[in-house]
Design a protein around this nucleic acid. Structure first.
Lengths: 203, 203
DNA sequence: GACTCTCCATACGCCACCGTACGGGAGGTA
DNA sequence: TACCTCCCGTACGGTGGCGTATGGAGAGTC
């Protein structure tokens, strides 16, 4: 019987109380998420990650049952980050300012590649599929709620949220695969304003 | 020295003049393109495709130097298809009707998954990268040209073409990875109209 | 009927990665 | 000091895909 560690990501009891550095389950999940951001789901591979972490598979299979468990852990980690993003946006009261913030986030947000595109591409994966569905529905409801607060009818609010999400997906994928096609310098700001105006809920 | 076949895709001299069925280079390219539409670039794999075609690797390595050559052939095949699509759209003179046609194409076009998303995801690949850049610039210039004909200023025409392409990318990726999130039935048409109105060049 | 050319089948070595088995070191505990 | 637990290193077998070498079947040519 393996995997006698606590099942949560946080290191509860720390048997690394003294000198020698030892890896936690969460270290693996972070590394996996980072690798996925850089090179997609296929980059979550045990042996390459082990080398990157300066350890071996022996460590991995102590903390995780198999590769899918690592993928799951990485996605949960990502989930908390996206929740933080939505909360940050929700704290902005002014609709225009919030629109600007969201646009800025889509174009120049962290880590370049958004994980959502990776999930959409790998939606056939048994771990990814349900995760994607859950997170996306949540995000679309959130967007629709915001639009309703702005005065849109429920139907229109949902339509606009979906369209805005699609545009965000497109932006993320272009950033990832063809950033040289995006306007640079001054034109970048102009283009951001253009897209923001295009996607404005009320006009 | 291998690969003594004519380098174009069309079968020039047909040594399959009599009964027995033999595969052509083009058959492989078609199968590769189809597989890529279904499951991405990774699905262009020699041995699985051979089995799908009811043959073996021996056939493949007679027609192609290596896997990258097959990828290149599949992409060229796809290129001719997209050219045909653009020409079909260009034949529509009425701007509104053309917008409707393009929207319909984005939402219910052939084969479900657009290849462009696959290319964007695999832009690091040495064969895919240059191809993607070339085709995309061509498509964006085409879109900008149309917008200029409609009366937009050159700058605005380019911005709108890029935004429209991004939206198309988003739609394609959602169709591919989360089609259950798209409106169904009557709501589908309503949503298409919504997006079409949102992305209208002139307002 | 030998000869040639086209196209394919089979067998092989190689590599990357997954998952398992098992041993062992480091540090705490008796 | 003996032992025990946590965590990791290493070796192994298995799988799937790439590319090569080589033989050979079929049909045309003389």
């Amino acid at each position: 019987m393996r995997n006698g560690v606590p099942s949560d990501n946080v290191r509860t009891d720390g048997p690394a109380r003294s000198g020698r550095r030892t890896l936690s389950r969460d270290d693996w999940a972070r590394a996996a998420l980072e690798a996925m951001r850089e090179s997609g789901l296929g980059a979550i591979a045990v042996e390459p990650l082990a080398e990157r972490l300066g350890t071996t598979k022996g460590s991995f299979y102590w903390h995780f049952k198999d590769r899918d468990a690592l993928i799951h852990a990485a996605l949960e980690l990502w989930c908390t980050e996206t929740d933080a993003m939505m909360e940050a946006a929700a704290r902005i009261t002014d609709p225009v300012e919030r629109g600007r913030w969201l646009t800025e986030f889509a174009f120049t947000g962290p880590q370049g590649a958004d994980v959502t595109t990776t999930l959409l591409v790998n939606s056939q994966h048994p771990v990814v599929g349900p995760f994607l569905d859950r997170v996306t529905r949540q995000r679309l409801e959130w967007g629709a709620g915001i639009n309703e607060e702005l005065g849109l009818a429920p139907e229109e609010a949902r339509q606009h949220a979906l369209a805005a999400w699609m545009m965000a997906i497109g932006i993320a994928l272009v950033r990832r695969g063809a950033p040289q096609l995006l306007p640079q310098g001054d034109e970048a700001d102009a283009f951001k304003r253009f897209v923001m105006e295009l996607m404005r809920p009320l006009r």
